[in-house]
Design a protein around this nucleic acid. Sequence first.
DNA 1: CTCTGAGTTTAGCCATTGCTAAACTGACTG
DNA 2: CAGTCAGTTTAGCAATGGCTAAACTCAGAG
Lengths: 136, 136
Amino acid sequence: MATAKQNRHSRTRSDHATELTEDYVEAIFDIVAANGTCRAVDLANQFQVSHVTINRTVGRLQRDGYVETEPYGPIELTTKGTKLAKASKERHQIVLDFLLALGISRSTAIADSEGIEHHVSPETLNAMKEFIESKD
Amino acid sequence: MATAKQNRHSRTRSDHATELTEDYVEAIFDIVAANGTCRAVDLANQFQVSHVTINRTVGRLQRDGYVETEPYGPIELTTKGTKLAKASKERHQIVLDFLLALGISRSTAIADSEGIEHHVSPETLNAMKEFIESKD
DNA sequence: CTCTGAGTTTAGCCATTGCTAAACTGACTG
DNA sequence: CAGTCAGTTTAGCAATGGCTAAACTCAGAG
Ligand SMILES: [Mn+2]
Ligand SMILES: [Mn+2]
Ligand SMILES: [Mn+2]
Ligand SMILES: [Mn+2]
């Protein structure tokens, strides 16, 4: 029997498996909100990665049911993708606001929150929310 | 580990490139401290990953100058590896203590700090240190 | 209408990090 | 001092996420 002893490193590994997905659906959500539509070139610009990498990553997102797109067409979030995007954006915002409430400069807070957001459990997220509120 | 400014996603990508290295040198440091020596099997047990994966990862660590090892021999940190291990352990401890000071349960704090530690800039680390001291 | 070029896709490469199966080493054990 | 076997290495596979070069599409300019 596979003992599957979950330890703290296993948690971090699984966080990383979903990290890119979360950042992509967040970005697609924001680009659609700003431009009305999202094209591969917008994502390449956002992530500073080649358009070819974007193309294959979006293919995985589609395979996994987060986006819908046709050849040469725009990239749209599915219901599942939209749900993940909203949850991720909310969590990301809380982490950012928390770092700002801690007194971190905005540019550092923006950079740090981009990585930290993916490793914050619901319990820690809640504590961050309370801390923000305690600081008005 | 907080280098390359570029944009916020580039920072996260470079953090991840060093993340595994940091966790490994930390683990090797601790295992040597506890057992007097570190073998591949100890790391496989620690990371819940196959011994083959450990073998190849240690090979990369050696290639990059963090560890020294001979076939069938124990794994030792180089000066560079020891330095990184100590810095990583210190940063990790601060992140853990910070989460505890925030009121997070120990088991959650242990799990979350394992991922968060790699995305914390010096500025944020400093703010965490001050927060811990303010709670003394 | 045709042509053109920005944007997309395809082809093909690489490194990392995971795996299983199988071969090999060398340190205790009997 | 030969055998055993836990631990290590090798071989070979896969998925992810990077890249460049080259081929292809299609909407708008002419
Ligand atoms: Mn985000
Ligand atoms: Mn992020
Ligand atoms: Mn870690
Ligand atoms: Mn991470």
